[in-house]
Nucleic acid binder design. Structure first.
Lengths: 338, 338
DNA sequence: GTGAAAGCGCTAACAT
DNA sequence: ATGTTAGCGCTTTCAC
């Protein structure tokens, strides 16, 4: 009577209902034939005892439908959105998700990977991290656990990326169309694909519209935090010629830029047009700023589908899936005065 | 050879090393006596096979050290902070955390609770939700799973609350000390303790300083979203007498208020002093705003400790633990002009 | 020092 | 329509 943790077990239900465990199982899983009377008795017993099957016993017997998800801890709401998207896509496919947030503590990756293998996950999704120590990847590979990367990823692997080039391109183009010729860029210089694509999208949009890129207008910072945006903006504003519009490769950078502009008393959008990227905090700034939105739900869905597909065809060629962006207009890009 | 999911199992390691499973177990758990030579052989075999013990088999045999955590999905960084705090406190106590985010979908609570019981968690932490359907609580109770609530909670239960009265009181008092007498309040009117305490803290601070509360200065809204703050601020500013300072019961409300103030061209803090609450987005606004910070790590730690204590003494009286706050000054509360 | 064997709670093939 | 039984992979007592 009662299992080690004090919970009733299947045998208890069976005894109370006066049937065999098999019958209990059939009632619970709604398969096989059970007489109406026995079904009654079993359901009654389950209720009376508050019986809930032991997941671990089930898992040991039948395997599990589990997907592991590693996320970067970040104050950025984008990750919360992707996390939600992955949760929902997995649930929808009948998988459970085991989420692990990476805080950057030592030994963390190793612990997470071991945990995933120990739990025999069917696959792993890695969001926004972009790399994992090689031995850990090897470990996953040996355990034949497919991996799909979201947003940041190594080369030659299954991944779902944001079309950052197109996103940036269209954002900058929208500024050009509004009449801007002196558009500054605040972003990062990381060597990673995400950052390269955004910068390239900016440069290409200028070039394709007959505007010569000007290195003075490109501020490449070390971090996406607001203070970087603030410093970049200060540099841009205190130098000549001033830009008439600024594109920030992340909302947080524009957010920092606006802190500078507030104290410099530069009025937005009258004196300066602004465009952010990722559409996270842009909405809550004063004023709310144009930004490039991400289809998080689509990223999640595509990642899970790719993962399950790869599980079926482990030997296939790695795929890269691109997810589009969407310009959100909040009125901070207007015709420049001069 | 190989388990159902294709992973090597203990027997495989034992065979390869030419020893018994028992010996493998001893090497893995570093207990019992194993000859240096056998230890070598086992370690070698583990490495060679990439063996990782099956968590479910271990759990079935030995039980698990698991704590379930339910969080409200919310764009508010506060929850990410608490989540992290709970993660770290649990890990530190040797427990694993099973996080579930509640998105507000139908049937969700039921699924989460069943999942927790099925996994035989040692306890459940519920952050910022404040209530759960009674049958579900009963279910947890029957399974003898202790519950600790964080930030929002029913009466008579184990909980870790923020000292919202003191937090608000000290914030408002700091404005009074700066010379303000006309301080408006933007908050919520929910009937829940959190909202009542904040409003009461505000009123008490005024009263204790000889300022008669003025209902015109209290804007009680329906949501913490920025648009509420914006509407409230518009009301306050377009009516006489105008406040010289505004306290927002959440950073997001102040954030909305600032959107109004920006377009009304009210300069902060010269024309109006501002104070937020929860210290989340206040830092990234233009200008960065004073706010009341929460000790998230302390909340997490206290919650886990209380949970484990309750596990040992299930029959004890419910405890309410209070966590203090901390005023963060960013220069948006200054002496009023008039 | 080492190993054999029983059993954790559940499922499913196979009887009946 | 129902029950018997043999494991799933691991831990641990007990015997050698």
């Amino acid at each position: 009577m009662k299992d080690a943790s004090g919970n009733p077990k299947m045998a208890d239900v069976a005894r109370l209902a006066g049937v065999s465990q098999t019958t209990v199982g059939r009632v619970i899983h709604k398969n096989g034939y059970v007489s109406a009377e026995n079904r009654q008795r079993v359901e009654e017993a389950v209720r009376k005892l508050g019986y809930v099957p032991n997941t671990m016993a089930q898992g040991l017997k039948n395997g599990v439908q589990l997907i592991g998800h590693i996320l970067q801890f970040s104050p950025n709401m984008l990750f919360a959105q992707i996390s939600r998207a992955v949760d929902e896509a997995c649930t929808q496919k009948g998988y459970q998700v085991l989420n692990f947030t990476k805080y950057g503590l030592p030994g963390e990756d190793e612990r997470i990977v071991t945990e995933f293998i120990g739990r025999r996950v069917s696959g792993v999704i890695i969001t926004s991290i972009g790399r994992l120590e090689a031995p850990l990847l090897k470990k996953l590979e040996r355990a034949r656990i497919p991996v799909v990367w979201i947003e940041r990823a190594p080369e030659h692997c299954d991944r779902v990326l944001l079309d950052d080039h197109a996103g940036t391109y269209s954002a900058v183009e929208s500024m050009i169309k509004a009449g801007h010729r002196k558009i500054a860029y605040i972003g990062l210089d990381s060597g990673q694909s995400v950052e390269k694509l955004r910068l390239q999208g900016y440069r290409d949009a200028l070039r394709d519209n007959g505007i010569a890129p000007d290195r003075q207008m490109e501020k490449l910072m070390e971090s996406y935090q607001p203070p970087s945006g603030c410093r970049a903006m200060a540099d841009l504003w205190e130098k000549c010629p001033r830009p008439t519009g600024v594109f920030g490769a992340a909302d947080t950078l524009i957010c920092g830029a606006m802190q500078y502009l507030y104290q410099a008393e530069v009025k937005i959008p009258t004196e300066l047009s602004l465009m952010g990227y990722d559409n996270t905090v842009s909405e809550i700034l004063s004023p709310p700023v144009n930004s490039v939105g991400i289809h998080a739900a689509e990223m999640g869905r595509k990642a899970v589908e790719l993962l399950l597909r790869r599980r079926e065809a482990p030997e296939g060629e790695p795929e890269t899936l691109w997810v589009g962006t969407e310009l959100v207009d909040r009125g901070t890009v207007v015709k420049p005065i001069k």
